[in-house]
Write a protein that binds this DNA or RNA. Structure first.
Lengths: 159, 159
DNA sequence: TTGATATAGTTCATAGCATGAATCAATTAA
DNA sequence: TTAATTGATTCATGCTATGAACTATATCAA
């Protein structure tokens, strides 16, 4: 009886699967639209915007490092960085120890822009979290973390 | 005291905002990688795959309808449909009542492919949901729904 | 010390995503 | 019947992304 109960309880209904599919799709679309909006707002192509954000973590970056962090190929990084350099947000500096390497860092303008972008991100996230009651917020974050772990573990499984 | 307590309780910590940002970013990336994997698996560009999925809901579609559902301009649809027609997954049929319109429907191959794709989607979603205990699953879906509502309401707010 | 090999980065060709303007054909309305 | 509207295509443009070929520098080993 207990066994039977367990089986019934762990069964996943088609309804749940569909509900889940729909929710994930909608959230994904929402994120995409947001990214699109941010590009407009900050007058930067998405890839350049994402690249700029990386300078929040480290003062100097290399093409190679950016390629790794953005998960793109190095020739792509050349193009992205070219865009940012043209817009005077990022500058190229030769590495004093290894002349194969060019170090990349923010210009003053780039620094300002980064702060502006981060403030906006925080503002939006704050607004979203404000839609919930504190207890609900905590529960939501916990569940989101569980979902993330589940999706990533399935991803690993499928490689 | 109660008032103060309320204020403290509704405050959102920087930690929560950062945590939320990180979680959403990671989930978004996970979805992107999945989309990418699916393109490889089904040998279709992402837009064509998404377009094919629309035929699960209706037997006949028009370019205009697809443009609306996919949220792209009509010239883009022409290109996407061309790809699907070349791959013999979709066929163009003239509308008997209005010769400006070309109706689009799945071929036999397209129908097979669609079933194959949907089965895979269900399989993956099932796997993800299986990572959780039944109670947790229910809670996660509820919280995901709350998050979706919150993000969409903030989106509306910002237009 | 001098090759061979490895590393960092750029250029170029190619493909997909997406838009907007111009165009064409068919339909509807004045 | 002409004028306006609608459905769809073509073309030019720009962003995302890859992979191969190439340049220049650095390191390792004979």
């Amino acid at each position: 009886m207990n066994q039977l109960n367990e089986n019934i309880r762990s069964e996943i209904s088609d309804y749940q699967i569909q509900q889940f599919q729909t929710l994930v799709t909608k959230l994904f679309q929402c994120c995409q639209e947001r990214a699109h909006y941010q590009c407009e707002r900050f007058q930067l192509p998405d890839a350049e915007l994402r690249c700029l954000l990386l300078f929040g973590e480290e003062r100097y970056l290399t093409s190679k490092g950016i390629a790794y962090k953005m998960n793109v190929v190095k020739s792509r990084v050349t193009k992205i960085v070219n865009g940012l350099v043209q817009k005077k947000l990022v500058q190229r500096i030769p590495d004093p120890e290894d002349s194969r390497i060019t170090l990349l860092s923010l210009t003053t303008d780039g620094h300002k822009k980064l702060i502006e972008i981060n403030e906006f991100y925080d503002f939006v996230n704050h607004q979203v979290l404000l839609q919930m009651e504190p207890e609900q917020r905590k529960a939501m974050l916990t569940n989101l973390d569980i979902l993330k772990a589940s999706m990533e573990s399935v991803k690993e499984m499928m490689v």
